[in-house]
């Protein structure tokens, strides 16, 4: 391999990493806006999502929520028919690591996520609305499929540290 092709490969890998980083941030923005359609555009058809946690209280890994893309779309369609807390969530995400596979077709990343809840319709909205509270802390463990230089989510495991989960939104974090 000559030095030119080596550079091209390095640029390509850096480019993919930038695209993955951008995809993660776009996902955060779409989720913050409850814009499920935009979020799903970032996901491959094989996408699988889960929210997990480790409980030191019972010394067990737990899955709080899981579903494939079809199930998630079904869930989102059901949301308007249910009572929900409309307090917006605000995700602060920092991408820590991105590892692109040797063949450049898949990648894995780990990001930190801190989610704040901006109160809207609490027990007494007269008092509570407008206040921001720390809602959840955790990490995104993402996996991507890369086709034609475009990364798409194929798996997201949101590993949260919270086991106390008070009232709030019941959709993907």
């Amino acid at each position: 391999m000559d030095s030119e092709s080596n550079d091209m490969e390095n640029n390509s890998s850096a480019d993919i990493e930038r695209k993955i980083e951008k995809t993660i941030y776009q996902a955060a923005l779409a989720l913050d806006k409850n814009n499920w359609a935009d979020w799903f555009k970032l996901c491959d058809d094989s996408f699988f999502y889960s929210i997990t946690s480790f409980s030191p209280e019972i010394s067990k890994d737990m899955t709080y929520f899981s579903g494939d893309k079809k199930e998630l779309i079904g869930l989102m369609e059901m949301l308007p028919k249910h009572n929900t807390d409309h307090s917006p969530l605000h995700r602060h995400t920092s991408v820590y690591t991105i590892d692109v596979s040797d063949d450049g077709k898949t990648a894995e990343s780990v990001s930190s996520v801190v989610i704040y809840q901006n109160m809207l319709d609490g027990i007494n909205s007269h008092l509570d609305s407008g206040e921001s509270r720390l809602f959840v802390i955790g990490k995104y463990h993402d996996k991507f499929l890369i086709n034609d230089g475009v990364p798409k989510f194929i798996n997201r495991e949101t590993k949260i540290d919270n086991r106390r989960l008070d009232k709030g939104s019941h959709w993907p974090l």
Partner: peptide, 18 residues
């Protein structure tokens, strides 16, 4: 069981129907 439990009692369950 886990799937059923999460839908009925988990912290990310949907709230009861209006």
């Amino acid at each position: 069981r886990s799937k059923y439990y999460n839908e009925k009692f988990g912290p990310f369950r949907l709230q009861e129907l209006s």
